[in-house]
Design a protein around this nucleic acid. Sequence first.
DNA 1: CGCCCTGTTGAGTTTTATCAATATTGGTGG
DNA 2: CCACCAATATTGATAAAACTCAACAGGGCG
Lengths: 246, 246
Amino acid sequence: MPSPLIRKLEQFTRLSRDERQMLEQASFEAVRQMGPREDVIREREPPQALNLILSGWACRYKYLEDGRRQIISFLIPGDLCDNPAFVLREMDHSIGTLTPATVAQIARPRIEWAMAQYPRLAQALWWESLVCAAVQREWTVSLGQRDATERLSHLLCEIFLRLRGVGLVEGDACELPVKQAELADALGLSTVHVNRTLQELRAAGLIGLKGKILTVPSLPALMATAGFSPHYLHMDREGRHLDAAE
Amino acid sequence: MPSPLIRKLEQFTRLSRDERQMLEQASFEAVRQMGPREDVIREREPPQALNLILSGWACRYKYLEDGRRQIISFLIPGDLCDNPAFVLREMDHSIGTLTPATVAQIARPRIEWAMAQYPRLAQALWWESLVCAAVQREWTVSLGQRDATERLSHLLCEIFLRLRGVGLVEGDACELPVKQAELADALGLSTVHVNRTLQELRAAGLIGLKGKILTVPSLPALMATAGFSPHYLHMDREGRHLDAAE
DNA sequence: CGCCCTGTTGAGTTTTATCAATATTGGTGG
DNA sequence: CCACCAATATTGATAAAACTCAACAGGGCG
């Protein structure tokens, strides 16, 4: 199976064989096998290589002095961890795994070379960082305006679509290997409240959640209760005018 | 006085005379004078040129179906509006002025040319978009974890520092030409609660607010109550190794 | 078998929102 | 310069959403 990064970038534009091959190769050179709850990189450290999630889940997060934690975003296969890497000298947040994960480290010069060599690829990577920013803005909207039910269902819609984008949805089901406490830290809610809100969504038949498997019988219905509008994900091949011929 | 964009970028790296001149010129070619509460660009529109705030305040925002509004970020002089411009085909949020403002429109080819011509400038612009993303992450933390008092004082710290970065702070005072309702939309609080929280900060001697002038008698004190740590703003010249010689 | 981690439930509390009324302010025209 | 108006800020009272605390259940694993 292809690197999930390729699947992801091809939501923007079709890559050439060379570009795909280049990414494949980069994804296999320096792979870290990580356990759950390990840090990929920590706040205040200088970013070294570019980290790419190949399998498993991770998250960006930040602790406050007194131990409160906010999960800033979820990282799933195909996601790049530290686009800041090239310009900023130190991380302003940490990245940690949530599950066992395999993480590829792509050396800096390699990326620089690839971006110079393949302009289409450079555009695609730029797209990915802009989408990442768009997702962050949407989280701002959720945390600022949406109530617990909307917030949770909105997050589930987003996750479902993002997983589908890299081929990790089967039928109406996907993995959701995340504890309620972690959802709570992402949503700015207490675990108790997340628990009750999940039950509410289940009772309404909007989701199923058994083991670590999330099922969404009707995505439109879930999107409706979330007030979810997918266009911030920019998944509709906005770079199709750049498509490779092959 | 120099374009605020130059001041801003020089928090990252010192630009050459050519680069500065280029930016100055670009800032003066197509200038829009806008009134308060006008849209610079609207959600779902294709971004055309790159908009740069020369004076006045604006914000990114998004409405939900039922009229709730979240202000996603504040834009002050020196801020670029639509870094997405180059790659994304449509805006996923709107940008509107809060006060009368002058906005420069920089044509796309011009930017592309400048970034190819001046690598240092390209790095600086990249830095600015990464800082923008870092600020968005910090808003996520605020909205998710901080209570009303922390949230408000954190925002005021951020605004104060950003304004200082472009030379818009005099002594311990700066302009804050923003209505309480707008603060509320940014902080995810009701206007009533913003009002009471402001009073609390005033009563504690942490801020003064008269007319549209904010005074911060002791920035460290305000930062302490906010739990504010400035390093996410990356203002400490992280690109100094790129400094122009002149 | 027992333990720890995660999820679930109930009760009471806190924060923040809502509603409605009143005060203040800045701007405008006379 | 004053009177008036609309927009903004302030206040009080009540309600809702979400939190905290504490206890208990279930499941996986040594």
